[in-house]
């Protein structure tokens, strides 16, 4: 309960700060929303030339894009600014203060800033979802899908968070780690497409590695597959992927926790 209180204060303080720099806030909101609009426009173009990409027709794929937007906006709102900040805190010694506080350091470091403007895309995603779902051919509403969808979005956010905080924690060892952080963008790029497209001698190993080693392919694919199709009907792994996604989330969180704690143990602080 007290952790919730601390988090709400973080969120509140972040909002106060965002409102101080109102113009910046609005620009951020507009630029991230127009980036999403451009993405959407691009895929509309692609679907002028084809009916179907790896088993996903246009409106199913729009659901996929909406899911990506949900996950990304949550990650960007809650975790991204903090992971970025961690590398900086290590370099400047600001992590010292986090270590003094009588509260879990990973919690503090992971959630102290909320980037409210990123939640603009969350609303756009809601609209896109409401637009696309009824237009899917032969769509049937299922209560299970409606309940599971948000839960798996949260699971996806937690997996991406785990990858991000693990990479950011390495900067505690290395003093600085900008490149590994870029690496996060490279690999999460793969998660933004239906996993069915990773096929053939080059695609299959990628699909396997990004499902079972670094489980980023389940992040979007599982919730999108649940919402757009009858519970992952077309997925190469079928509904079992949803069971796996739960395990993957727990494993990713546990692993990132372990790495973070290890890293804190060898923190050396910057000189005054």
């Amino acid at each position: 309960m007290s952790y919730l209180g601390v988090f709400l204060t973080f969120a509140r303080n972040s909002l106060i700060r965002d409102m101080t720099f109102r113009a910046n806030f609005i620009i951020e909101l507009i630029s991230s929303m127009s980036w999403m609009a451009m993405n959407l426009g691009f895929y509309t173009l692609v679907y002028r030339y084809t009916q179907n990409i790896a088993g996903w027709d246009k409106y199913e794929f729009f659901v996929f894009i909406a899911t990506t937007m949900f996950v990304n906006s949550l990650v960007q709102a809650f975790f991204m600014p903090n992971a970025e900040e961690l590398s900086e805190m290590v370099r400047t010694g600001g992590l010292d203060f986090a270590l003094l506080k009588p509260i879990d350091t990973q919690f503090l470091v992971s959630l102290q800033r909320v980037n409210w403007s990123s939640l603009g895309n969350f609303l756009v995603a809601l609209m896109l979802l409401a637009y696309a779902v009824p237009r899917i051919e032969g769509y049937q509403f299922s209560l299970a899908a409606a309940v599971l969808y948000p839960l798996y979005i949260v699971a996806g956010v937690l997996i991406l968070y785990s990858v991000m905080i693990t990479l950011a924690a390495t900067s505690i060892w290395l003093g600085r780690n900008q490149s590994l952080y870029d690496f996060w963008f490279y690999i999460t790029n793969f998660s933004r497409y239906p996993m069915e497209i990773y096929d053939g001698p080059f695609g299959k190993p990628l699909q396997w590695a990004f499902t079972f080693i670094i489980p980023i392919l389940v992040v979007i694919n599982v919730p999108a597959g649940i919402m757009a199709k009858p519970i992952l009907a077309d997925n190469p792994y079928g509904p079992w992927l949803a069971v796996f996604a739960v395990l993957a989330t727990i494993a990713a969180l546990a692993f990132s926790r372990w790495v973070f704690q290890k890293a804190l143990g060898s923190y050396r602080s910057a000189s005054s």
């Binding site: 601390v6 204060t9 101080t20 010694g93 600001g94």
Partner: peptide, 21 residues
Amino acid sequence: KNQLWWDLPAQESFKLHQKIY
């Protein structure tokens, strides 16, 4: 080094301390 939020009035950081401690 400072630990207070740079862009916020100090009283907001104080409230945060109240919650954390």
